[in-house]
Amino acid sequence: MHAATTLRAPLRAHLAEARCELLRMAREPAFCLPVLGFPAMFYLLFAVVLNRGNPGAAGYLLASYGAFGVIGAAMFGFGVTIAVDRDRGYLRLRRTLPTPPGSLLLARMTMAMLFAAAISLLLAALAATAGGVRLAPAQWAGLALVNMAGVLPFAAIGLWIGTLVGGNAAPALLNVLYLPMAFLSGLWLPLSMLPGWLAKLAPAWPAYHLGQLALKVVGHDDGGRTWAHVAVLALATVAFFALARRRLHAGG
């Protein structure tokens, strides 16, 4: 009985933290609308309006814009909020509160994964109706799983950036990284349309590896090994979370 009570108390705390975080972000239309709207808008423009009925291109862009949207939700959801919380002294205040270790990060990870799921569902609906994309049920589910798991490395990168700069500088710095990385990773258009030397540099970006995992689900990847993409993303997750943790513990 005592053990069950001991387990339930932290669980209730984690759930309450997650609920508060979700309410906080839901009440921020400046975050929700771009995060959900930009991938859908780009998909409608490039995969539907300009595509002119090519289901293969629409399938490629379904995977690549899904990865693009998830990366933005993860990086901005962590980077900006952590930077703002540092500026306000909220993180120092939390050290004095009897909350379970890591509850804030778990809550924000839950928030980012739910946004990833929402982006996946929205793009899937557009692809199946307006884009003419036809996939097996396992492929639709696979895209959603890749997108939700893909939150981890980019949440780590966003968290690290949020420990480096203040709340005013974080959005600008994140955009400077996010937009070029997405373009150079083949998420906006196929790498074959870029100059050869730029395409060869694409594997240096974590976004390339998430994009390739998503493209592999729909059969449009470059043929790389799944384990190699997963390994790069796992390494990025561990490395950037470690860097962020050191900064946070140092009071950075």
Rank of each mutant, 00 (worst) to 15 (best):
G142L: 09
A156G: 05
V133G: 02
L159I: 10
L145H: 08
W140T: 07
L164T: 11
W140P: 08
L152T: 06
L143E: 04
A141K: 06
L143N: 03
N147D: 11
L152W: 09
G158P: 04
W160F: 15
T129W: 15
A144T: 15
A138W: 11
R134Y: 10
A128H: 13
G166T: 10
A136E: 15
W140H: 03
V151L: 00
G132E: 10
I161F: 14
V133Q: 00
A136L: 15
M148A: 14
M148F: 04
G158S: 10
G162P: 07
R134G: 08
G166R: 09
I157K: 04
F154E: 03
R134L: 13
A130R: 13
R134C: 11
A128V: 07
Q139S: 14
M148Y: 05
I161R: 01
A149C: 15
A149I: 15
P137L: 01
L164I: 12
M148S: 10
V133C: 02
L145C: 15
A156S: 11
Q139E: 14
L152M: 13
G132A: 09
L159D: 06
A127G: 01
P153D: 07
A144R: 02
M148H: 07
V165F: 14
A155T: 02
L164V: 15
A149W: 15
A130Q: 14
M148V: 15
W140F: 03
N147W: 15
T163V: 06
A155F: 13
A144V: 11
L159Y: 04
G158K: 11
A144D: 08
A127M: 03
A130N: 07
G132K: 01
L143C: 08
T129R: 10
A149D: 08
F154C: 05
V165D: 03
V151G: 01
G166Y: 13
G162T: 00
A149G: 14
I161W: 04
M148L: 15
V165N: 04
L145K: 08
T129L: 12
V146H: 12
I161Q: 03
N147Q: 15
F154V: 12
A130S: 10
I161N: 05
L135Y: 08
V133H: 00
V133D: 01
Q139V: 12
G150S: 06
W140M: 02
A127E: 01
A128T: 04
L135A: 08
T163W: 01
A136P: 01
V146S: 09
A144M: 14
W160D: 00
L135P: 13
L159Q: 11
A136T: 12
V151T: 09
A156P: 00
G162V: 00
I161H: 05
A155Y: 07
G166K: 08
L145T: 13
W140D: 02
W160H: 10
F154G: 04
I157W: 02
T163D: 08
G142S: 09
A127W: 06
L152P: 11
G158H: 04
A138R: 06
L159G: 12
G166A: 10
A127C: 02
V146G: 09
P153E: 07
G131A: 04
A138H: 08
W160K: 03
G132N: 09
A141H: 05
T163A: 11
Q139K: 13
A149T: 13
R134D: 12
A127Y: 07
P153K: 09
G150R: 00
G158T: 11
L164Y: 10
L143H: 02
L135W: 06
N147P: 06
L164W: 14
G132T: 12
G142W: 02
